[in-house]
Design a binder for these strands. Structure first.
Length: 603
RNA sequence: GCUCCGGUAGCUCAGAGGAUAGAGCAACUGACUUCUAAUCAGUAGGUCGAAGGUUCAAUUCCUUCCCGGAGUGCCA
């Protein structure tokens, strides 16, 4: 973290002590938080930079001690091996924290020269079924990442690309034609995406029936895969015909498609609204699926691609990625053709410096190939394309499969979380049921879910056990929200006594009074906030922010227990602790908001 | 076969060259007439998958191997 006396130490070492070495100041001397069982607030690890000054680590540590023990911000300094543990004066430490909080909007921002315009594509659902827990992980990661990048100063363009056409969309449509009975969301009282999804399940049931019949009728082909037999079934053939009709603009098919997609979009809107997903723009694949073909032609002309003997156009991507087909021999697109097209379209539409895709890790190779192709095509911005791959969400019973209906539905999951939050609230509030119980439960329930999903490193495969995963105690979102609620409660108490926290002039307080470990630990953590957000943003990893918020909330809860605020020994101490609480609250609320999680004032 | 990701406490996960490897859950003990116990304090729990190597220092980097997962389509 950036601590004044350490910055000054660095300056002293470079420009005075070792001036004859003519060093530039790109050296980082990083103050780390001192381990809990050691005496001190921050630690300077001299192993890390002693070589820079051509010193041995122990001698370096001695020099650091000599400088710091005379510094006015430092109370005590002690070297253990090459670790220098520094006890800062309470006044200096709390001032560092206050400085950050006083200008929180700006203090976490990167220098303007380091900020970029970044397009973040996430969610990307199909319109044949409602969203499930896997999509919820994607949405949560995507919106939090977009929010985090924006928070540190990037200009973020959140984008969605809805897969609203193709064979799988036709499957729901065929099933609706056959089994729909003219049902609508209104007539059945069913959310549109769920209604359409039910026909996707019906379709797969029917397809399986036909496949079974086919296999029993023709044992000689029984060992072929479902995909291989698809076009030999009546329903498979009908589905393919419908796709062709759609592509030819058949009015009846297009009308059915439009109607069912609109149902799904209405359903998605509700889900997105509840999660808080917002997009600058939503691309529809029905508008973009023909993009890219012209680029293939250009690439062929420029030599980036070549036509294989069988007629397919391919990109040679070397040993590891192999040869990738970018256009079929019949001249039609494959998936990567569209991806090439939409990547360029996004660039043309927004001119981003960088593009990020939040897409599952099963597509890692696909994106490596896409990026390699973009480079091959000569786009200089192709070096700033990034696939944020995340792991799958599995259930104790195994993998989630939409077509088998073994999924945790997003909307059901939200309801379940919110209901549990409501029960937890009711069990604690006694006879007086809060008026805003539903609003509160929504915030706590959704907060718990998002926090849980963000806690894991994105690339880990999550095992979601509903029984074990839905918790409001321990390392959870509500734990952090609870710390905020506790502070709000203290502020209400202060208000009753006529003390307005907003009116406290923090700058003029004598912070040296707040000298307990609990009080100082809180400020040490606050001092780390800006670099924590920036580090998380650079790694595109929100779990860094999650662990930070847990640490800060934990430090606050310890403080809460040990240092009474409203019944502090003196009025002066009371005001100081209120100010400290306010610093904590500002950072916790800001951190949660960065993760797209809201807070409540009472729990 | 090849490529990528993972293997750390009973469970779910942090740590990515530095001090005696950490949290939460579960187990056990204790703390609510107190600013909210969705909390706090404590006990117990480890051959960091295995073996070599690099280094003053390796759970972290390198090599080989074992185990689990994913990818390896003119699918998306």
């Amino acid at each position: 973290m950036k601590i004044n006396c350490i910055e000054e130490l660095k300056k002293f070492l470079i420009t005075e002590k070792f001036s004859e070495l003519n060093l530039d100041d790109n050296l980082e001397i990083i103050a780390e938080a001192c381990p809990g069982d050691m005496d001190g607030d921050i630690t300077v690890n001299c192993f890390k930079f002693s070589r820079f000054f051509k010193q041995n680590p122990m001698a370096m540590a001695q020099l650091v001690v000599e400088y710091l023990e005379n510094h006015s911000d430092v109370e005590k300094v002690e070297a253990i091996k090459a670790f220098v543990n520094v006890t800062l004066s309470a006044k200096a430490l709390h001032s560092e924290a206050l400085e950050i909080v006083n200008d929180l909007a700006h203090s976490v921002q990167l220098p303007k020269t380091e900020t970029q315009k970044i397009a973040v594509e996430y969610s990307a659902p199909n319109t044949n079924k409602p969203q499930h827990l896997g999509h919820v992980r994607n949405n949560t990661l995507g919106m939090a990442l977009a929010s985090l990048l924006a928070r540190v100063g990037h200009n973020v363009i959140p984008l969605n690309l809805v897969n609203d056409r193709g064979i799988h969309i036709c499957k729901s449509m065929i099933a609706y034609q056959r089994f729909g009975n003219g049902d609508t969301p209104e007539s059945t009282g069913t959310k549109g995406d769920h209604l359409v999804g039910s026909f996707y399940v019906k379709y797969n049931y029917e397809l399986k029936k036909q496949l079974d019949e086919l296999r029993s009728q023709k044992p000689e082909i029984a060992d072929k895969t479902d995909d291989e037999l698809f076009l030999q079934t009546e329903i498979g053939l009908a589905t393919q015909k419908m796709l062709q009709d759609w592509e030819n603009g058949d009015t009846e098919v297009r009308d059915l498609w439009q109607m069912m997609n609109n149902w799904v979009f209405a359903g998605f809107d509700e889900t997105y609204k509840r999660m808080g997903c917002k997009f600058e723009h939503t691309y529809l694949e029905s508008n973009t699926y023909l993009l890219g073909k012209d680029i293939i032609e250009q690439g062929l002309a420029s030599g980036a691609f070549k036509r294989r003997e069988d007629g397919a156009v391919v990109a040679d991507l070397g040993k590891k990625m192999g040869e990738k087909v970018v256009l079929r021999s019949d001249g039609t697109s494959v998936y990567i053709t569209q991806d090439i097209g939409t990547t360029i379209k996004k660039y043309d539409d927004y001119a981003p410096d960088a593009q990020v895709w939040v897409v599952g890790d099963e597509q890692i190779l696909h994106f490596k190939q896409l990026f390699a192709i973009m480079k091959k095509l000569g786009y200089d911005w192709a070096k700033n394309l990034y696939h944020m791959a995340y792991g799958m969400v599995n259930l104790p019973t195994g993998k989630m499969k939409s077509r088998e209906g073994t999924v945790v539905d997003a909307d059901d999951l939200f309801d379940e979380m919110v209901n549990l939050a409501k029960e937890a609230t009711l069990s604690r509030c006694g006879d007086e049921v809060p008026i805003d119980i539903d609003e509160r439960s929504e915030i706590i329930g959704l907060g718990a879910l998002k926090f849980m999903l963000l806690k894991f490193n994105p690339k880990t495969t999550i095992m979601f056990d509903p029984q074990a995963s839905i918790k409001f105690e321990g390392d959870t979102g509500p734990y952090v929200q609870y710390a905020v609620a506790r502070i709000s409660s203290i502020f209400r108490k202060a208000e009753e006594e006529g003390i307005s926290v907003d009116a406290i002039d923090c700058g003029s307080l004598d912070w040296s009074e707040l000298a307990t470990d609990e009080e100082k630990n809180v400020s040490t953590l606050i001092a780390k906030y800006p670099e924590t957000l920036q580090y998380a943003a650079s790694k595109k990893d929100c779990s860094v922010v999650v662990s930070y918020l847990l640490d800060l909330a934990k430090a606050f809860n310890k403080f809460y227990r040990e240092c009474p605020v409203m019944i502090a020994d003196t009025d002066e101490l009371k005001v100081l602790r209120l100010a400290l609480c306010n610093n904590v609250k500002e950072v916790l609320v800001d951190g949660l908001k960065t993760l797209t999680i809201d807070c409540v004032t009472e729990m």
